[in-house]
Computed example of a mutant assay.
Amino acid sequence: MTSALPDVSDARARLLELIKELAVVRGRVTLSSGKEADYYIDLRRITLHHEASKLVGQVMLDLLDRAGHNDFQSAGGLTMGADPVGAAVMHAAADAGRAVDAFVVRKAQKSYGMGRQVEGPDVKGRKVIALEDTSTTGGSALTAVEALRNAGADVVAVAVIVDRDTGAKERIEKEADIPYLFAFGKDELGLD
């Protein structure tokens, strides 16, 4: 029995409006990749916003469901951009009556305590989604994918809120051999 997916078009439209209003900063900037751009997309202004955070969870969960990834058990990514995205997806899933955990991937494995690089409920043997707020080169997502695989997770996709169309999709799909999904492209934000 197939059930229709809920309509999230209003959530998607409102989230796009908030991203344009709050997260797109115009002006010459140097990105974490070292590349320069004429704009910056500061999605922490969205993922940590009282209204937008809930919309992020709804839109990202819908994106994953529509791509056929409705059976994943955990979602998260490299700290810190992915942290609130993972929490938003976890809460949206809970609101939909689904049990999805979140996790945080450290940039390096801890040298003390339990020595973990992936924090949260164990991901070993679980289907997981590697999340990012946005990606320029795909480096952060690839770091997360490697750490997750080393922890025994079955990484089924990488998903980001905004794709900058700077090669991250192609790199991730080639190097990690998994789908790269995004909720919004830079064209939807009016960026060239």
Rank of each mutant, 00 (worst) to 15 (best):
D71H: 12
G139Q: 09
K20H: 05
L148E: 12
G139T: 12
I172F: 08
R164I: 08
D71G: 10
A88G: 04
G152S: 09
L78Y: 01
A96W: 02
L48F: 04
V89T: 00
S32I: 00
L78W: 00
A88K: 01
V145N: 09
V104S: 15
A93G: 00
R28W: 03
D83Y: 09
A176D: 10
A130V: 15
L15K: 08
V123W: 12
E146T: 15
A82F: 01
R98V: 02
T2D: 10
D95Y: 09
A87S: 08
A75W: 11
K20G: 10
V160K: 09
P121F: 08
D42Q: 13
S140T: 10
S9T: 15
M60I: 13
G97I: 06
S3K: 08
G125D: 12
S135N: 10
T79F: 05
V89D: 00
S3V: 06
Y180V: 02
E132S: 12
D101G: 11
K186E: 01
N70V: 01
V29I: 05
R66P: 03
L61W: 03
G190R: 14
A37L: 11
V25N: 05
A183R: 14
A176F: 08
A153M: 00
R26I: 02
L43H: 05
V105A: 13
V128N: 11
A23H: 08
A159M: 08
R116F: 03
T166D: 15
R116P: 03
Y112T: 09
D7V: 00
Q58W: 04
R171E: 05
K20S: 06
Q117W: 10
A52K: 04
D65H: 14
P121G: 05
N70M: 05
A75G: 06
Q58F: 01
M1L: 07
L142R: 14
G120W: 14
E21D: 15
G125F: 04
V85L: 02
I19K: 07
M1D: 06
A11G: 03
A141W: 04
L63T: 15
D154R: 12
A92W: 00
S74H: 05
D38Y: 06
L55D: 10
L22F: 07
E17C: 02
G152N: 09
M90I: 01
M90E: 14
R106G: 06
